[in-house]
């Protein structure tokens, strides 16, 4: 019985916080409700308070992340799956600590480390180009489907359209039209579908119909 009560309490918290926050966001400052606006406006204050609370909690969860990173790699350092994994965990921990120490004691060393981070980031971003080209070739080898063919056509139109050749100027106009009309339609279709799915799933979570998370106590 205690177990089910725990789960019911968890669902109640989701429902109460969800309904109050959504109601507060929907009524806004109450101006759309005429005379009754003043009555519903406090909901907005409650909703803003909840959102602010969650923003602060999210910022504080950084501690959880750092704690996880240090503990996972400390364990891997001792009981890692192989020498390589242990070495990587060691380097990760050392660079984390060195960066924190450098930040505390020397702005010069801190700048050097920031620069190292930026350089690695740019090198990885450049590596993405090879990965994407490899992906395009892989798609070609995967067999012919209508979707795959259209995908490749869309990719080639953009790539060829970007070539700085005067002979390709008419193609540039086609590219512009494609971007403005069919590509915009496809993107809108995908985004509207995601928004609808978010809306339906969100409402089901808020009214407690979808409870596929957090029911640790109910299954223990």
């Amino acid at each position: 019985m205690r177990i089910r009560l725990g789960f019911a309490l968890y669902t109640t918290v989701v429902v109460v916080f969800g309904v109050l926050t959504l109601a507060g966001l929907l009524v806004g400052d109450g101006s759309a409700f005429g005379d009754t606006g003043a009555l519903v406006a406090p909901l907005n204050t409650i909703s803003n308070l909840f959102i602010r609370l969650v923003v602060v909690v999210i910022a504080l969860t950084l501690v959880i992340g750092i704690f996880n990173l240090l503990s996972v790699h400390a364990v891997r350092l001792v009981r890692g799956p192989g020498t390589g994994a242990r070495l990587n965990s060691l380097i990760l921990l050392v660079s984390f600590i060195v960066a924190l120490v450098a930040y505390q004691f020397s702005s010069d060393y801190n700048l050097i480390l920031e620069n190292v981070q930026v350089q690695i980031e740019l090198a990885l971003a450049a590596l993405i180009c090879f990965a994407l080209v490899y992906g395009a070739f892989r798609l070609l080898r995967r067999g012919v489907t209508w979707g795959g063919l259209v995908f490749l056509a869309g990719m080639l139109i953009i790539l060829i359209g970007a070539l700085p050749l005067s002979q390709l100027e008419p193609l540039q106009q086609v590219t512009d039209w494609l971007t403005r009309v069919p590509l915009s339609a496809g993107a809108r279709g995908i985004l509207l579908g995601i928004a609808l799915a978010t809306l339906v799933t969100g409402v089901r979570v808020i009214i407690g119909q979808d409870r596929t998370y957090g029911n640790q106590s109910s299954v223990e």
Binding site: N68, L69, S71, V118, I120, E121
Partner: peptide, 19 residues
């Protein structure tokens, strides 16, 4: 095992995580 859930920082352009 506690080490099964892991956080990696996103880093600039989420490249630290994917790296």
């Amino acid at each position: 095992r506690g080490t099964s859930a892991r956080w990696y920082p996103a880093g600039p352009r989420a490249l630290a995580y994917s790296g």
